[in-house]
């Protein structure tokens, strides 16, 4: 197992290099970093521009340029952002922390309720409860997050304030303007609406996964064997049903990080929540190459990491899979 993990980690290095090269290419073509620099800093001297090109590896030759960028990236010589010359790492670190908080909260809430809803639906397939859960989930996945964000904001923030004098949930940021220090309650209040919006998507998706997975399992022969043993329905469900039904669900969950991050990006933007999504959209809009590349590296690395976690958890849950 350990050897497998080490080998997978070793393999992820070339993958990371290849993908970051593709990202580098895409950003060079798509955002034209040098032009963006000149646009943001119209009075920059020739020497300044050359310095910007050198440190970011923006040579006319893409391959040479990539390796130059890579060398500077690894040795920690990161260029400051083109707008306001900010240090990149502190900004990226804060964004990561904020997104991790929102993402974890939404994922935990979402997967917990999603799995429960899926199990409840699968227990009596075709029953009234099943139809209700399944239809709600279907509606849930059909509504894009920015639409639910707009509607919930309108209801809970704007109109709540008109009707009751105070909005139920704030609509932007982590803390109110001018607040300093840590305040858990205030933070939860600010995080509530974005968490709900991301969680709705996750609940809808996972209740459907869990339902169909558990239904497959419920019809299998070993469930009949379990029933023929005369053990309680609860034990049959938990020990024989859930354990098998979770195998495909867990694998999908770990591979689904991309789409969860996607939901986060949209939601963060709407709520002006200072995480990875807002960071990306701002720097992408500015064509801010020094901010964008490290962001991409973080995203690619986390996708690879979660892929590995998916495989490991798969093998851990299913004894038929041996990692070699």
């Amino acid at each position: 197992m350990l050897r497998y993990i080490l080998r997978r980690l070793a393999w992820s290095v070339p993958t990371l290099l290849l993908v970051t090269f593709l990202v580098y290419l895409a950003l060079r073509i798509g955002t034209d970093p040098v032009e963006s620099y000149k646009r943001v800093n119209p009075r920059a001297s020739r020497a300044k521009i050359q310095q910007y090109i050198d440190i970011n590896g923006l040579d006319p030759n893409f391959v040479q340029g990539y390796f130059k960028w890579l060398k500077n990236f690894i040795t920690g010589e990161w260029a400051p952002s083109i707008k306001g010359r900010r240090e990149v790492w502190p900004a990226l670190k804060d964004a990561m922390a904020n997104t991790l908080r929102l993402g974890t909260a939404a994922t935990v809430v979402g997967i917990f309720f999603g799995l429960i809803a899926g199990v409840l639906a699968a227990l009596r397939p075709g029953g009234r409860r099943d139809v209700f859960i399944n239809t709600s989930a279907f509606v849930g996945i059909s509504i894009p997050p920015f639409i639910s964000a707009i509607l919930l904001q309108l209801l809970f923030a704007v109109y709540w304030q008109r009707w009751f004098g105070e909005s139920l949930f704030p609509t932007s940021g982590v803390y109110p303007a001018g607040h300093s220090g840590f305040d858990l309650f205030l933070m939860l209040k600010f995080m509530a609406l974005p968490t709900i919006i991301v969680a709705i998507q996750i609940i809808a998706t996972y209740s459907r996964y869990m339902r169909s997975s558990l239904l497959d399992v419920m019809n299998s022969d070993y469930m009949r064997t379990a029933r023929s043993k005369g053990i309680s329905e609860r034990r049959i469900l938990i020990k024989h049903g859930m354990r098998n039904a979770l195998i495909p669900v867990v694998t999908i969950a770990a591979l689904d990080v991309g789409s969860i991050v996607g939901g986060l990006i949209i939601t963060e933007n709407i709520f002006a929540y200072p995480g990875m999504g807002l960071y990306f959209l701002k720097s992408f809009g500015d064509g801010d190459f020094p901010l964008l590349m490290p962001w991409m590296v973080v995203i690619v690395a986390s996708i690879l990491l979660f892929n590995l976690i998916a495989d490991i958890s798969y093998a851990w849950l299913d004894p038929r899979i041996r990692l070699e």
Binding site: Y222, R227, G230, I231, K239, H240, P319, R320
Partner: peptide
């Protein structure tokens, strides 16, 4: 009752099924 049947199944009356490949739970 379901409870009565549970106490009978596996104790007084038990059953072997056709397909041994799928009759056992793969994860236990």
């Amino acid at each position: 009752s379901a409870k009565q049947m549970r106490s009978v199944r596996g104790r007084l009356l038990s059953m072997i099924f056709q397909d041994p490949l799928s009759a056992l739970n793969p994860v236990h």
